[in-house]
Design a protein around this nucleic acid. Structure first.
Lengths: 352, 352
DNA sequence: CTGAAAGCGCTTACAG
DNA sequence: CTGAAAGCGCTTACAG
């Protein structure tokens, strides 16, 4: 017995069959089949006779076996997880989309991995690298600031769904809500109420959405034969604070207006507060319309007229399309149409 | 050569050194060291001579190597990820906590894994099972409805931090904001303004928070010698809608009151809207104070007086404590004190 | 239909 | 200080 022997297998403390961790091997032992068979049943990869299946199901139930996703991912190349690049995990607007994604993935047995890009292309790129390292099966990018090309490159490695863009590439589907049309409708609503001096609070210009919304505003004016007045357009940053500042500037400029269209609800709230502070009533003195239809819009005083941005549905749609791609199906999606929610912050133009 | 030979190693298509995936082995090869050494450098597990370290660093940079977290988790037992059980991924209140957790974990190289329990003990339990299957290094539970015992059991398997509870156990730290004191302060603010008929909109009774806030309300009344009037207490569900309904009931009951303390901001918004609908002005006719200080509270009309619930800080704190536990340090945390944010929804009691 | 075996990309005792 | 080897818990060709 002097011949060199292999070292005995390391006694793992974590997987000692005496301790808690239930592995697939233990299930196989208890059921009296091979690990391969258990794996096949778990994944529905091959036909298995009914009696073996029954034995395995019983063993799984008895042991309370839950497959280890990490081992699965490492071995099988699929992790059943989808990376989601959001901009801020606590954004009131994207919140709805996150829930839509979560709900849709959940019913297919996938889990979302949420990361925040903070509106910064470099950070988004880091997020994506991290998600790829975690071997997610696909990535959903909610708008963000990466270049279209960076996105295309990313799509070469795994399926990609991106919102807030128009963009075509293999392995990549872009879902874009029609911001221009939505903004046109919102403006048209004001025009229908007799308003002609309609101020516009723009969004942060680095976002394509912001430009699209401004285009919709101008399109509505033009169709109604109202001259575009650049003095009535003030910049904003999509925050409440910036909406407030914008209205103060507008008021200080002394250009007359009877209505305001803010590029998003948060700025519309700031705008309403600024009007209130200056003693102007909404909608008697000035009508206000927002964009997004945040959950809170229905409950502010007065309830905000706004155009619905179907965040939840877009999230669901993005996840659904991702699932289709993963199944090898040809992805197809119908983006919801814009819809103006008329509430109490808009009224007929005063002296018209 | 007729002796049985081992089958040749399977030619993996994914890891073929010609394809994209950069593994630790490739780094080791390029640097001319063993995989163990690369691993040690990555993890700082042992001393390595400077020249080897330099070679490895260079190889990592050249190849753009990113370690595979799944392999790491499987082999090493640590995943550098922390499960976070939130109730709704899009909750306006928990949003701040999620960001706090994210920020705090990020600087330590950990990633959060967010899952939603939807205020349902069974779903929370499923979330936790899933997180354990993913081998997270620890779990943070934001309030939720699991029993203290279920939580204690969970803490036996891995470090646990839970908010919104008072609870002691090994391997588990509970972080509780002083809801009672906060509610007392909010009510006291109203009393200081001369109000004596103060209505209270309760929160969902299944939440301990809700009961604590009610206790604080009563404590303030008692200290001021104001008799508690159960007619002025109406139930709510922590939603805007329920706040609205509550005020309608209050108004219909014809019991007089000059101020309302709502158990959270969302209900305070609904309450304000109900008052507005009935032609009552805030704060001239009725003062309103909320609880939470949601981001939007500063921007509604009129800006809402409320008591700050430091969601972001609590998130940071929870993550910080988790990190301490993971490092084997004795966890210690200082929960922020309540703070009333006086804004414009409260004013002196009318005819007092 | 089913099992044995190799491999996924790492970490970590073990033995210099 | 460093390498060879075994192992983490699965999946999947391969060979019946």
């Amino acid at each position: 017995m002097s011949s060199p022997k292999k070292a005995p297998p390391r006694k793992s403390s974590r997987t000692d069959s005496a301790t808690g961790v239930v592995t697939l091997d233990r299930v196989a032992q208890l059921a009296g089949v091979s690990a391969s068979t258990v794996s096949r049943i778990l994944n529905g990869t091959a036909k298995v006779t009914d009696d073996k299946r029954a034995a395995v199901d019983a063993a799984i139930a008895e042991l309370g076996f839950v497959p280890n996703p990490m081992a699965r991912g490492l071995a099988g190349g699929r992790t059943l997880s989808i990376g989601v690049v959001t901009q801020a995990i606590d954004s009131p607007f994207y919140g709805g989309s996150l829930r839509g994604i979560e709900d849709e993935l959940d019913r297919a047995g996938y889990s979302p991995l949420f990361v925040s890009g903070h509106w910064n292309a470099a950070e988004e790129a880091r997020c994506i690298a991290m998600l790829q390292a975690r071997r997610v099966d696909g990535i959903i990018v909610l708008t963000g600031r990466m270049s279209d090309n960076a996105l295309r490159t990313c799509a070469k490695r795994m399926p990609l769904v991106v919102t807030g863009r128009t963009l075509k590439a293999k392995n990549l589907v872009a879902l874009n809500f029609n911001n221009t049309e939505a903004a046109r409708l919102a403006t048209q609503h004001l025009i229908d109420l007799g308003h002609r001096r309609i101020a516009f609070i723009a969004g942060d210009a680095v976002h394509p959405d912001a430009m699209e919304r401004q285009a919709g505003y101008r399109a509505a004016l033009q169709a109604a034969g109202i001259a575009f007045n650049p003095e009535l357009v003030v910049p904003g940053l999509f925050t409440e604070e910036s909406g407030l500042t914008a209205v103060n500037r507008l008021l200080d400029s002394r250009h007359r207006f009877t209505a305001i269209f803010a590029s998003n609800d948060q700025m519309a709230l700031g705008a309403s507060l600024a009007l209130h502070r200056r003693g102007l009533r909404v909608p008697q003195d000035v009508s206000v319309v927002g964009f997004d239809d945040l959950p809170v819009a229905r409950f502010v005083v007065p309830p905000l007229t706004t155009v619905q941005n179907p965040a939840y549905e877009m999230g669901q749609l993005a996840a659904g399309v991702m699932l289709q791609m993963l199944r090898g199906e040809k992805p197809q999606a119908e983006v919801p149409l814009p819809n103006v929610m008329v509430r109490e912050s808009t009224g007929r133009c005063p002296r018209t």
